[in-house]
C-alpha cells in the first residue's frame, strides 16, 4: 500500500522548545493509532500535518503533497476533529456543518445535502435544527465528527474522539470510526491516550515519546506473531516431551525455578500437535497460555526501551 504520510526528518519547535525531533518514516495503514504520554508531541504532529505549525527542519508529505508548499491542497483532502470543544454556540448544527462544508469548497446545494446526510449518519438527525450550545458533551463530539467528514475527505484526523464520552457514547463513536475505516475510502489517524480505543479501531500503531516515534507496528501482524509464543506448565517428566516438540521445529526454553516452558512455534505447528505429543509422552499440560503481547505491553515496552528512534 502506498504511504499516505511521509515524514522526512521533520522537526518542529514551538516557543523555542523542540517538540518534534527529526521524525522520519512512511505510514500507510488504513487506520493508524497515535499513542504516547502527555507532551509526547502527538497533537503537534497532527497540527503540523494540517499546516498549523511550520517545520523547523525537514518536511512532511500528505498524499505526496508537501505541507510547506501545498497546504491548501492538503487541507482539501483532510477532515479534522480537534480534541477540545470546537463549535459556535449560537448556530444550529445544520447551519454550522453546512458552512464548514462550503468553506471546504462544496457548492451551497451540495453542502446542504451533505450536511443533512452527515448529521443523520452520526445520529444527530433529529437534533440538527437545535443550537450547538444546547448539545450535551456526547452530541458535541458527534457534531465535531460530522464537521470533519461532511466534505468527504480522503484522510480523517481524530484527536481524542472519545474524550468525555460515557460508555454507550464511546461505543457509538468507535463504531462510527470503524464503519468509516471499513468503507476503505479514507485513511484515519486516531490520536488517543486510551489504548483500548486504538486497539479496537486501528490496524497500525505509532507510539511517540518525547517528540520522537519510538514504535511503529502493525497490530494484526503483532497479534498473529504472538499466537506463536506459548507459556506451558506441565506435570511429570517433560524431557521426552521437550525433545519431541523440538523435533517438530519448536524452540523451547525451560525456566529453572518453575519448570515452565517458553516455546516459539513455527507456522506449520498447531496447538493440537502439542496435545498429541503430551498424550504420547504421558505428561499433563496443566496450563497453556499465549503470550498476551497486548497493546499495553507494546506501549509499556516502547516507553521503557524507546530510544527515540524508529
Amino acid at each position: 500500500m502506498n504511504a499516505f504520510i511521509e515524514l522526512q526528518g521533520l522537526s518542529v519547535s514551538l516557543a523555542g522548545r523542540p517538540i518534534l525531533k527529526e521524525l522520519s518514516g512512511n505510514f500507510s495503514g488504513r487506520c493508524i493509532g497515535l499513542l504516547g504520554p502527555n507532551g509526547a508531541g502527538k497533537t503537534t504532529l497532527l497540527q503540523t500535518l494540517l499546516g498549523f505549525h511550520t517545520a523547523t527542519t525537514g518536511t512532511a508529505r500528505v498524499f505526496g503533497l508537501d505541507v510547506r508548499t501545498e497546504i491548501r491542497e492538503i487541507r482539501h483532502q483532510i477532515g479534522y476533529m480537534p480534541e477540545s470543544d470546537a463549535f459556535i454556540a449560537g448556530m444550529t448544527a445544520i447551519r454550522f456543518v453546512r458552512m464548514m462544508a462550503e468553506l471546504s469548497g462544496l457548492p451551497p446545494e451540495a453542502a446542504m445535502e451533505r450536511a443533512h446526510e452527515t448529521l443523520f449518519y452520526v445520529g444527530l438527525g433529529e437534533a440538527r435544527y437545535r443550537k450547538l450550545g444546547t448539545y450535551s458533551l456526547g452530541m458535541k463530539q458527534m457534531a465535531k465528527l460530522a464537521v470533519s467528514i461532511v466534505h468527504g475527505p480522503h484522510m480523517l484526523i481524530l484527536d481524542e474522539p472519545t474524550n468525555g464520552l460515557d460508555p454507550p457514547g464511546r461505543q457509538r463513536m468507535l463504531q462510527l470510526v470503524k464503519e468509516i475505516r471499513d468503507t476503505r475510502e479514507i485513511n484515519v489517524i486516531l490520536s488517543s491516550h486510551l489504548l483500548r480505543d486504538v486497539e479496537e479501531c486501528c490496524d497500525e500503531v505509532m507510539i511517540m515519546k518525547d517528540g520522537r516515534i519510538v514504535q511503529y507496528c502493525n497490530l494484526e501482524e503483532q497479534r498473529r506473531a504472538n499466537r506463536k509464543f506459548l507459556h506451558i506448565e506441565t506435570r511429570g517428566d517433560n524431557s521426552p516431551f521437550l525433545e519431541a516438540v523440538e523435533k517438530l521445529g519448536c524452540e523451547c526454553a525451560v525456566e529453572a525455578k518453575t519448570s515452565r516452558i517458553k516455546m516459539v512455534m513455527p507456522e506449520t505447528v498447531e496447538i493440537r500437535n502439542l496435545y498429541e505429543l503430551a498424550e504420547t509422552h504421558a505428561i499433563q499440560i496443566r496450563r497453556l497460555d499465549y503470550k498476551r503481547d497486548s497493546l499495553q505491553g507494546i506501549f509499556m515496552e516502547a516507553m521503557e526501551n524507546g530510544n527515540g528512534r524508529l
Binding site: 494540517l50 482539501h76 479534522y80 470546537a86 463549535f87
Partner: peptide, 18 residues
Amino acid sequence: SPDLTNNALPLYLSRPFS
C-alpha cells in the same frame, strides 16, 4: 469572539481557508 470562545478557529483553518 464566538469563534474564539468556542475554539472554532481550528475548524475554519483546517480547511482550504487561510
